[in-house]
């Protein structure tokens, strides 16, 4: 009996914590779905009293105002994750094949780049990009995002390839495959899971990136920059709606990847 009460108290504590913890999240959703009379009053309600899709409608139907940032964010994200994989798959694979010392040194170098504050990279590349015409366009932003993405995707992929059973690859070599063929026919298809994870993380890193986008944007914002624009204008309905729209794909993808979420990945992947 005593045990039961303790378990109940424990559970209630956790539920209350979750409630408190997730309240801000609910708040954004609530604002994006409430009519102004729920918000702009002396005592705004906790629940959604006057439900409306008006804010979503006005954002989604605002034509290019919405579609251009969406397009830019999507294209940058997709381009960055594809380019990121193209560079980091072979790199990570060969790193995983180096001897221990060299492998360690390379991982350290790659990890070190994560310590560099973005602002000290963003400034010089912005100056250079203005000169060579990569300012305020997708390719330029993609290159900037790769600075963030490559270390993380290399990290993930070195882990994936290091864990690949050596015998299978050797077997393929014995069966007459050259090194590159063994990689394409055996290693690659069997590492597809890990590669997908790296790709999706890369996309997410680009999707919610803010610092490089701030430096490299003038007239063509990405989704986060557009949201920042609304919040700095005090337009809370549009900013909340943008926040929800930005968050939804992130949540879906993250939960799809849930079993792969390990502190090692995340330390590099999520914060920044």
């Amino acid at each position: 009996m005593k045990k039961r009460i303790r378990a109940a108290i424990f559970l209630i504590t956790i539920l209350i914590l979750i409630l408190v913890f997730l309240f801000p999240l609910y708040l954004v959703l609530k604002i994006s779905l409430s009519k102004p009379q729920d918000i702009f009053v002396e005592k705004p309600t906790y629940l959604i009293k006057n439900f409306t899709f008006e804010h979503f409608k006005s954002v989604l139907l605002s034509g290019e105002t919405f579609l251009n940032p969406l397009k830019k964010s999507l294209l940058t994200g997709i381009l960055a994750s594809i380019l990121g994989l193209l560079v980091s798959i072979p790199a990570a694979y060969s790193i995983s094949k180096f001897n221990y010392k060299l492998k360690y040194a390379l991982i350290l170098v790659i990890f070190m780049t994560r310590m560099i504050p973005e602002i000290s990279i963003a400034l010089p590349i912005t100056i250079s990009f203005i000169k060579i015409g990569l300012f305020d366009n997708i390719l330029g932003l993609t290159l900037a995002h790769l600075i963030r993405i490559l270390p993380v995707s290399c990290f993930i992929l070195v882990g994936v390839f290091s864990g690949f059973p050596d015998e299978l690859e050797r077997q393929a070599r014995i069966d007459g495959a050259s090194a590159s063929k063994a990689f394409i026919k055996v290693v690659l298809p069997l590492s597809l899971g890990g590669i997908t994870v790296a790709g999706i993380f890369s996309f997410l890193l680009s999707w919610d990136e803010f610092i490089y986008a701030s430096y490299l944007t003038l007239a063509r914002p990405t989704m986060p920059i557009k949201m920042y624009y609304y919040i700095s204008r005090g337009d809370i309905f549009s900013s909340a709606t943008y926040a929800v729209i930005i968050t939804i794909p992130v949540l879906i993808l993250t939960f799809a990847l849930q079993k792969y979420i390990k502190p090692d990945f995340l330390s590099g992947a999520i914060k920044g």
Binding site: L25, W207, S239, Y242, T254
Partner: peptide, 29 residues
């Protein structure tokens, strides 16, 4: 329940900023 605690990690930092601004303004929540 654990994933619910991990949820904030998945929220983009900019969105966190927006969220917190609703929470912390003088007339905020």
């Amino acid at each position: 329940l654990r994933p619910l605690f991990i949820l904030p990690l998945a929220i983009p930092t900019t969105v966190v900023g927006v969220m917190m601004s609703y929470l912390f303004t003088a007339s905020g929540w």
